[in-house]
Amino acid sequence: MADFVKSSHVFLDNPAKNVDEALEFLSKKMVELGYADDEKAVLDAFKARESEGTTGMMDGFAIPHAKSDAIKQTAVLLVKFAGDIEWESMDKKPIKVAIAICTPQEDKGTTHLQLLSEVAIMLTKESFRSDLLTCDDPEKLAAIVEGCFK
């Protein structure tokens, strides 16, 4: 698996203040980037998944993910927020970075689950988390995240 994350998928200093604003931003970007054709359907998919249990992980990271018929091609987006985001997380700490995984509904779970698994594994590594938190170069950030899919 490769080429899911491009520098155009990396967004720095996003002004969102809470999970809803973050998911709205991600849904909008999926349409703007041409990966989806219905912003509301993507947002509904993100929110449906979030209602099953938070995608806020540990140490300031979240892995929101959506599967929808509105999503035409798999994409991974990275958002670094300008401040802390109000987002329920496993360690009760605010979110600073979201790595969003979006896949077409027709994906029977293999790509979606594999991407989710690989990101979750990488988030257990201090060096990966530190690199994402300290880097502000979209090209390098894309390469860091892309590297966990190889």
Rank of each mutant, 00 (worst) to 15 (best):
F25G: 01
E126L: 07
T55W: 09
E32K: 10
L23F: 10
V145H: 03
K6A: 07
P15E: 14
F11N: 00
C102R: 00
D84T: 07
K93Y: 06
H112G: 00
K92N: 06
I95E: 08
T74P: 08
P104G: 12
C148A: 10
I71T: 07
A62H: 03
G109V: 11
F61I: 03
D131R: 05
H112A: 04
F149G: 01
E146S: 07
G147L: 14
H9T: 02
G56D: 07
M1E: 03
E139D: 15
S127A: 14
L132Q: 02
E21I: 11
E139W: 03
H9M: 08
L23W: 05
A45H: 02
V5E: 07
D38N: 15
M57D: 05
C102N: 06
K96D: 10
C102F: 06
E39F: 04
K93C: 08
T111V: 15
A66V: 12
S89P: 09
E52Q: 14
D3Y: 12
S127V: 13
P138T: 09
F61R: 01
F128Y: 10
D38E: 15
K93V: 08
S117P: 04
E39I: 06
D84H: 10
E50W: 08
V97Y: 01
D91K: 03
A66S: 12
T134I: 15
K17V: 10
G60K: 05
K47W: 10
I85Y: 03
F25W: 12
I71M: 09
D59A: 11
K92L: 05
K96Y: 04
V119G: 03
K150L: 14
A70H: 07
D136Y: 13
P94A: 08
D13H: 12
T124N: 10
A22F: 06
D13R: 11
P104W: 10
A36S: 15
